[in-house]
């Protein structure tokens, strides 16, 4: 353990994380309704996805800035792994879902909308060292 882990690692992005979570859940609801109505993804949903991804990028940048400023995550390797996944989640699933003509294209995007809030919670846990899910041995 480095000395950084002994310091309280404050979660530096509370408000952006909240924005990401709200946008992501909104996307999940919209895509979920579209899937239930058996509709394919309209283009404006892609705008919502772009907005979400923008918020995720801002979150990532703020984390890195805080890190450079000395407020380091408790578990840097795991944090970076989660950060990479959360950055790729929306574009990856939209690429995968948009190629599907039927309702399940929207279904895939709905899954992404539900996944990202969970990832954000895990990001915070790993940053603050509250992570117990992986077990500290």
């Amino acid at each position: 353990m480095t000395s950084a882990a002994l310091l309280a690692s404050d979660w530096p992005v509370t408000s952006v994380a909240a924005v990401v979570t709200v946008l992501s859940l909104a996307l999940a609801v919209v895509a979920g309704v579209l899937a239930l109505l058996d509709r394919k993804l309209p283009r404006w949903v892609l705008g919502l996805v772009a907005l979400l991804e923008l918020a995720v990028v801002v979150l990532a940048i703020q984390c890195v800035v805080a890190w450079i400023g000395g407020n380091a995550p408790a578990d840097p390797v795991v944090f970076l792994a989660y950060l990479l996944v959360v950055l790729l989640a929306a574009p990856g699933t939209v690429w995968w879902g948009a190629a599907e003509p039927g309702r399940w294209g929207a279904g895939v995007v709905c899954i992404a909308g539900l996944l990202i809030p969970v990832l954000v919670i895990r990001l915070q846990q790993v940053w603050t060292g509250a992570a117990t899910v992986t077990g500290h041995g």
Partner: peptide
């Protein structure tokens, strides 16, 4: 690969990434 299978693949892929990353970390570190 299409229809509901597309959603199934999505969830399996997420679990595959999550479980693989976690497992790799566990195997290497502890």
């Amino acid at each position: 690969k299409h229809g509901a299978g597309r959603a199934l693949i999505t969830v399996y892929a997420i679990l595959a990434v999550g479980a693989s990353a976690r497992s790799l970390y566990e195997l290497v570190v502890k």
